[in-house]
Design a protein around this nucleic acid. Structure first.
Lengths: 204, 204, 204, 204
DNA sequence: AATGAATGAGTGTTCATTCAT
DNA sequence: AATGAATGAACACTCATTCAT
């Protein structure tokens, strides 16, 4: 990837400029969607000329790819912190779920993520990236489910994979709920999501 | 509304042509996304000149709106058949879930629905339509949860609403799972989705 | 011209149909202008299918050409009636002017004529027709100015031609006045047009 | 209003470019008419890409509006110079008329103005602008007719308004004469226009 | 490093015209 | 004689991208 973009004599300044673009672009994609957000708008939001953006990103597509990469990093941190917390998994998860729900119900994040997911159907590169990060997330979750702290550690792997898919679906589905029920609150959801999560983390 | 579309002296032929367009458009939107699918491409897929499409739809937007309307009808039929089946709700639902899962995991439908959901962020009319149909679906589901056949009929309405949001999220999330785990099968999902659904349809 | 249009076994019926189209087209051109009036609209106004119009006119241009031809005929009738009325020319003209003014100030006719005049710049055939009819009108007017009943019959022809050009300009200019001063009434104009006309029909 | 057109850091260059477009557009409208002159053609004439024009004008309509605005400015200058010249109005006017006649008989200007007048029937904004500038011109002319230098200063206002309408009609009508009698010269017209103008500027 | 002027291919849409029926 | 379904070239306009400065 490095070879695709210009060399920048002052790497710190360059990185700051790159960040400016990413932040501005995420903001625009969120508000308008990927295709309706123009480079002109992004450049204005980033406080930079349109031409200059191309010194940091080879194309508009490269921008959304970079945003996805950033989100991958953030997500891994979430998993790491999950693993770091003490106590039985089921309690840690249910306690932590509230935060995850808030995250999925944040309208700004939700529409950006839906946008990226829709892009998956058209853009093989984005599809590949999103599938890769999702596969890694499931793998990490699997490790957690098979750890000592889990109530289901002895179950067959295929069953655990099913649990993971459904848990992920439940959380991912909140992105869609946010879009269709904009008034939905995290607390309201947790009333039912907690018990469902308990069921999915206990032996059937 | 009548005045917006040309009168067609031969309604059968016209309806067939309309369907041709809808089918072709759904196909293109699925493969390319709403914005990247051009009218030229849709017209070629439909075996018709670009200009002629405008005898049946006033705009590209009107096409996706018609597709959504068709899906609304289909969805209401699903609810009707759900209500028509005898037995306790929990059994009917869990038995019927498999079919619903298959539906959500159909790659063609999944990417089209995601596309429409993403469009929600840019297009207020589409947002309105999707939210309206979703609200009706939740209302119908509420009626079912409060019927005699339900194990949770006495629970407070707010709690039932939470259950509904989570159940819907779980199913909607399968659209996203399909995109990220294209190999996911309905059977594999059902292993964990069944128990989760049982939990969500029983008193906590 | 006959060879350009289909033979019609029943010429009366055909002529009636042609008239229907001309009337409808004049109406549409008036309201929308030549370029903004579509064949679809004209056909609807004429109570006839778009395709059928092409049995009577080879193109949209042919329709406006036919309208111009009709107006030529009407205009010659005006000159004939002018010559037929008894009395000194100056009185006949000033008395008859009021009617001519009304005609020029009729908003329906005014916009159609302006439309045709504008078309002159783009369409050589229309330009030719309009110039031809105007030349004939000036020639007839010249004959009147040189008749016994005229106060200026002895003046040099070039001077008479100047008078004609200015008189015609004054009337033609009312088309433009109508457009720019839609409230202008025939009576109001006559207050000043009468004296000007007297000056133009008397020795300088 | 500022927000409607891009900011141009180099206003001189931008103004030059704008002028290039206006000149090219006036030329194309004149030759082809407003609707038949395509943006592609205008851009080619202006030596600029079609897209770039939209950095200076928000739409094709905005171009013709700008042309009209320019002509308004020019016309006001004519009135100002008329008021500035010394002597009795009737002499000033008749002397100055020749210039006005030349202007109206310039084929390039004539067809462009007719084009704009025809557009009036379809485009309310253009109609409004042209009527506004015409109303102002008549108002200024009224002030002149009521000044000390006028032979008709004591006449009733309604009568003066009639005079103005007829004088304006006579000049406007030259636009149409130019179209129908392309060979007409300013000198030939003045032979009769002078006396008519004298009549219109003297008590009846 | 940074600008923004400039490009041109591509978009959704319209409409005069044709032709099978 | 008459229909209206069907065409496709043309249009105004947008926008990712390039490049001279």
């Amino acid at each position: 990837m490095d070879s695709k973009t210009k060399r920048h004599p002052n790497p710190e300044r360059a990185e700051a400029r790159r960040q400016q673009v990413l932040t501005a672009a995420a903001d625009c994609f969120r508000r308008k969607g990927y295709h309706s957000a123009s480079m002109a708008e992004i450049s204005k939001t980033a406080g930079m000329s349109p031409g200059h953006i191309y010194n940091y990103f080879v194309s508009k597509d490269a921008i959304i790819e970079a945003i996805i990469e950033q989100q991958m990093v953030e997500m891994f941190e979430v998993f790491a912190s999950l693993q770091a917390r003490p106590g039985m998994l089921i309690d840690v998860m249910v306690d932590g779920a509230s935060e995850g729900v808030c995250n999925k119900l944040d309208p700004a994040l939700a529409s950006l993520k839906l946008e990226m997911l829709a892009e998956t159907a058209r853009n093989e590169k984005i599809a590949g990236m999103l599938r890769c990060v999702d596969a890694q997330a499931r793998q990490r979750f699997m490790a957690i489910l098979q750890s000592e702290r889990s109530l289901v550690k002895g179950e067959p792997e295929s069953q655990l994979q099913a649990r993971i898919s459904v848990i992920f679906a439940m959380f991912d589905g909140l992105l869609i709920r946010q879009t269709l029920q904009p008034d939905l609150t995290s607390d309201a959801v947790m009333v039912a999501l907690g018990p469902a999560l308990r069921a999915l983390l206990s032996p059937f």
